[in-house]
Amino acid sequence: MKCKNIKRLITTYFDEETDQREKEKINTHVKDCECCRRYFNEMEELLKDVREVPGSKAPENFLSRLRAKERTTYRNRVFWLKPALSSAVALAALVLFLFNITRKPDPSILYVSEPQQYNFTGYRQINHIRENSQGYVKINMRSAEALSDVNVRITMPEGLVLSSGEKSAVWSGDLKEGDNMLLLKVRGRSGGHWNINGVLEYKELKKEFSRDVEVL
């Protein structure tokens, strides 16, 4: 057998799976071939060293960060189950913010639940976001009846931006009776307290709302 072929066999000589016949072939060859014998010794040393290379340890916060991602993913799944709203929320998420929609006359048609009443996946709600990190803004709308052709316009302040990079967004769609949720993915741009402003429009009705968010 040629040295080239023997060298190829030598690369797997030290594996448990290599059968005895193949090993004998190599043993016989390396006895008389100095070049292959050297290759054999070097490969043995190399594999011994490679197998001693310790694996890398996962970072310390690996699990807590995984936990945070799982929450986000789960939220996304719940979110996508709401097709009536999903077209408005093409953005993903990390943190929840709550909007209070200020009530104007005619609350019997449309009103908004208190933030605490909506237990969305049970995650901690916070009202701040870090610079350059992303998070969710949640708008919770409770309607006393099914309503069609509702618009929600959002305007972002200087220190925040939608994850798409845009400064405003409009959602148009129908509200079902009960709770309806709108999620927006936003990114902190510069530190400070900022107001995200919005307006909900239904026929002649206009409900303005605002939420103070701190960017750290």
């Binding site: 694996g55 890398s56 340890k57 996962a58 970072p59 690996f62 699990l63 960060r65 995984l66 991602k69």
Partner: peptide
Amino acid sequence: YKDKVYSIALTLTKDRIEAEEVSH
């Protein structure tokens, strides 16, 4: 499994941040 998975990911991505991302 986290150390093994991370270790394999690091070999493939050659970058610690990406290795964590892909392990997650």
